[in-house]
């Protein structure tokens, strides 16, 4: 599977870093003015037409970036093939789990709105 090897992984890492930078800067600029930041405000943000997709994009970029970074660490430091596959599998499951949980929550908030 060449989806996350060589150049593609390198491009994914850089594009996701760029997305993270833009989205985090956006959040840092916008959130201080959205007071009070209580449960209902967060819920409104996550259920909004713009907020929901942006949060999904943020976590998507975060998981993709983390996967390439963690894969690099594993390829450098873990040499036994079995251990390497097990750790890579675990990282993939955890990151997919995080992403699925975020998407599920966003969908539930959007449906409830």
């Amino acid at each position: 599977m060449r989806l996350f090897t060589g150049q593609r992984a390198w491009v994914v890492q850089r594009l996701s870093a760029l997305l993270l930078l833009v989205l985090i800067l956006l959040a840092m600029l916008a959130l201080p003015f959205a007071s009070p930041l209580d449960f209902s405000a967060w819920r409104a943000l996550a259920g909004g037409a713009l907020g929901g997709p942006l949060i999904a994009l943020l976590f998507g970029a975060l998981c993709a970036h983390a996967w390439v970074g963690m894969r690099d660490i594993v390829l450098d430091y873990l040499q036994p093939r079995g251990l390497r596959l097990a750790v890579l599998g675990l990282i993939t499951v955890v990151l997919l789990g995080v992403l699925a949980r975020v998407l599920l929550s966003l969908a539930m908030v959007a449906l409830a709105a």
């Binding site: 090897t5 060589g6 992984a9």
Partner: peptide, 11 residues
């Protein structure tokens, strides 16, 4: 060179 090891181990 387009390989996870040959080129892209460079940090």
């Amino acid at each position: 060179l387009d390989d996870v090891y040959r080129l892209y181990r460079c940090r």
